[in-house]
Structures are given as structure tokens and as C-alpha cells.
Design a protein around this nucleic acid. Structure first.
Lengths: 244, 244
DNA sequence: TCAATGCAAGTGTGATCACAAATCAAATAA
DNA sequence: TTATTTGATTTGTGATCACACTTGCATTGA
């Protein structure tokens, strides 16, 4: 029989890309990740294995393993009852997450600023264009699109930092702060958002100039904004609840 | 029936500690973690589900879920063949790991330096004593004890940093660098080790003085040492292999 | 009326089985 | 002898089942 591995001398195989055999578990895991980062689940929401299995049209087996993985990266939380929920938002946790993100994503973008190729810089520049385009026809508040584009922009930069260790950590941080961010973005929309892409333009400019410090500062401002916004919102609600 | 939760008014229940119901999966996970951090597995070693299940005297189910968790935190690596191995050591990966550890553990110890209570400081001081004691009767190179004590010392500090986000990341980093460190410690023993506890004493002194910068510097020196040692070793081997 | 009790449905965990893919070794052909 | 093939074994994946625990609700008792 033919060997399954692509033969370098085979002119046909050379043109074929490996098809990949992702497992059901991987699909479930990625789907849950997407939902979490996009903030499709509410904080404190309880998730059940069978419920997710039904919704995803599969058996319980891939779901339970995907949940276990998400729990270890703190994207979900295992209660003592052995049920699993998306972690609730607290002020302490938000500050903690923001500090970690500033530390790690700041380091990643500083590394990327000295390493990004002109081609990569052109890619993120074109993303700025997409952003403007989306703002131009703001007929509806397309929060999903906003979240996706924002994620693509940031990770295009982080991937260029060249650290196989930092990137998974950043992914974990986004997973953990996803539910918070979603709430913040909705709050932005209600509050009449200021220019969301302003910091992104500054970031691109700094990276193009290979100015690591400027890039880091702009990034810190960018990721701090939703957190401080949400923090003010939560504090206001807490004060209102206290007086009531 | 009696409520399962401890009643505050019940004089008997007040003296009883909750028994805890850890699952088999958790035990397997913790055992594999311990082995990984301690460097009991060799880099590039392939692990099989059934093999581990037999060794751990359990079925495949808890093992496969534990392996999946370890893969997501990059403590293990999933090959395209769908087999899983402990990641091999490369120079790039070591540099990457060291940089991340300096960044994150440095931040954690700087935080801890301003927050540790006198009681906590007394705890790590007593650990220094254990260390000296172990060095005094160095009849055999007790690498396991050394690794365990080193881990206990560092995490006693990290736990005091008060960040529920940073600590799991540090655990993941230790998991990933465990196999490297083990190799380095053996190399130390062969090379006639210099005072391993020297930096630890500096760390304790800095923390007692609430000097965050000094503590961070000493920690960086402490965790850099095995990496640079191993790096020199690998480079020497590579050169030897190249000339041969 | 309200708290305690008991039953039923729901849920997570672990074991076992079926299946497909990979791996390894012996046997065969060049 | 060397390269290829073929078959048996091993291995990961997904499904299903059994069991224990939790949860929610209706019933019963004071």
C-alpha cells in the first residue's frame, strides 16, 4: 500500500495540502472557546454536559473532555457540587485579569514591534481599514463582528512575537476575560462609543516605527479601557444597590 | 434527613472537617503533574493512555481526561499521530520558557514582597533551615527532595502575591520547564554544585525588607541559573556532535 | 402556614465496548 | 540482502451503560 505520509518525490502529493483529521472533541472545544471569548455565555451561567451535547449534536464524551480542558485554563469554573459554570465577575478578578494582561500582552507586543515583517504590518493596517468601513455603515451595532475583528487584530500581532509560550497564555487570558469584555462592549454601545479604533491606529503606527515602548503604552490604554469602563459601571451599581 | 452542609449550631459538626470527594481523574491529574514537575518523565517520551492506566491502577477514562488537561496547558504535546509525549527540549524553547518565567514570576514575587505577612516570612525562613540541614548530611544526592523543597519555597511566596490569575500560569510554566530543570539539577550534581540556597537567602532577606526590586533580581538570578547551565551543556553537546 | 420528609428527575463519573487508524513484525518478492 | 507487503497487535476516539450524588418538587407532619 502507499505510505500515508506525503512523498516528496510524488508530483501530485506535493500539490495537496494535508486534510487534517480534527476530532469531535476538538470541534467542541473550539466552539466553546469561540462562545466564551465572544461572551455568548453569561457570567455565573451553569453549563451541563448533556445540555451542551444536545446543543452541539454529539454525545457527552467529547463535551466532558472539552469542559475539563476549559476548566484547567480557568475559562470555566468547577463548583464543589461538581457542576461547572462560567466564572462570575468580581472587581478583584477584573483587576487581577487586567494586570496580568498588561504584563503579558505588553511584553508580547513589545517583542512583536521589533520583529514584525512589512507584510505582517500591511496585514494589520488593512484591518484598520475594515474597522473604519464597519464604523462608516453603523446601521446596526454588530458586536459580534467587532469582537471578532478586535481579536484578529490583536492576535495577528501576538503571533508575530515569536513566543510559543506566551501566546497560549494570552489565549487563556482572553478566554477568562471574554465574558467581562462582552458586557463592557455592550455598555460602550449604550454610552455612545468613542473612537474604538483610535488606539489601534496608534499601535500600528508604533509598530511600523519599531517603537516597542509606544506600542506597549498604546496597547495598555486599549485593553484598559473596557476594564475601567466596566469597573465604573459595577461600582455605580454596587453603590446604588447599597443605598437601596 | 440531615442537611449535608455543616450546621453552625451543631456542636458535633463544628468539630468535623469536610471529608472532600476528589475524583479519580483529579488524583491521576495531580500524580502526572507531580511526575512532570519532578522531571520523572524524559523529554520526548511517549505516553499511552492504557499504559498509564495500568501503572496507576485505574481505567482509561480518568487518564485520558487528565492527559487532555495537561495537553491544553502545554505540559504535554499532542502529536499528529494522536499520540502524546512530553515535549522535547530545544534551545529556543528553553529561552522562551525562561523569558516567560522571569516576566511572570518576577511580577509575582514583586507583589508578594509588599504583601507577605510576618508569619509567611517566618515560614520561608524555616525552609532555608531545612535546606541547610539537607546540605549538611549530603550523604546522597537527594534530587527528589531538592526539587520538592525548591517548589515548596517558591510557591509559598507566589501564593502570597494574591493573584488568582498569575498563580495558575506559574504552575503551567513549572509544568513545562519541569523536564528541563530535572536534567539541569542532575548536571549540577555532577558539576559539583555551588551553593544552591544562596539566592534563596537573598530572596528571603529582600522580602523581609519589603524590597520588591531586590527580591525580583534575586529570583531572576535563581531561576536563570539552571537554564543557562543547561544551555551551555546543550551547546557543548551540539558542537561536539557537529564536529564528530 | 411552614418546615421537614421522601420520591423522582437530572447530572457527573467511571467502566466497558466497538471501531478506525497507526505501529510493528514476519513473510514475501526483487 | 534489501525493499515491500501483509497481517496482527496496539492505540486513541466516541458511544453507551451503571452508579452515586445532587436538585427540585410534591407530600406529609406539626
Amino acid at each position: 500500500m502507499q505510505k500515508a505520509t506525503a512523498e516528496k518525490s510524488d508530483p501530485i502529493a506535493a500539490q495537496l495540502a494535508p486534510v487534517g483529521r480534527e476530532t469531535v472533541q476538538d470541534r467542541v472545544y473550539l466552539e466553546l472557546r469561540r462562545a466564551l471569548i465572544g461572551g455568548l455565555f453569561e457570567p455565573s451561567q451553569v453549563l451541563t454536559i448533556r445540555g451542551l451535547a444536545d446543543a452541539l449534536m454529539t454525545s457527552t464524551m467529547p463535551v466532558r473532555e472539552a469542559l475539563g480542558r476549559l476548566i484547567t485554563e480557568k475559562a470555566l469554573e468547577a463548583l464543589p457540587n461538581r457542576s461547572v459554570r462560567v466564572p462570575p465577575i468580581t472587581l478583584e478578578r477584573m483587576d487581577d485579569l487586567l494586570r496580568a494582561r498588561i504584563l503579558i500582552e505588553g511584553e508580547a507586543i513589545a517583542l512583536a514591534a521589533t520583529r514584525m515583517t512589512p507584510r505582517q504590518i500591511a496585514t494589520i493596517e488593512s484591518m484598520l481599514g475594515e474597522w473604519d468601513e464597519m464604523r462608516a455603515l453603523k446601521h446596526k451595532k454588530d458586536v459580534d463582528r467587532e469582537v471578532t475583528l478586535n481579536q484578529a487584530f490583536h492576535f495577528e500581532i501576538y503571533r508575530a512575537c515569536g513566543s510559543a509560550v506566551l501566546i497560549p497564555m494570552i489565549e487563556s487570558l482572553w478566554l477568562q476575560s471574554g465574558p467581562c469584555i462582552r458586557v463592557a462592549i455592550y455598555a460602550f454601545s449604550d454610552a455612545g462609543e468613542i473612537d474604538t479604533a483610535h488606539y489601534h491606529r496608534t499601535i500600528v503606527k508604533a509598530i511600523a516605527a519599531q517603537d516597542a515602548k509606544e506600542a506597549r503604552d498604546a496597547l495598555v490604554a486599549d485593553i484598559s479601557r473596557p476594564f475601567t469602563f466596566l469597573r465604573n459601571k459595577l461600582e455605580a451599581e454596587a453603590k446604588k444597590g447599597q443605598s437601596a
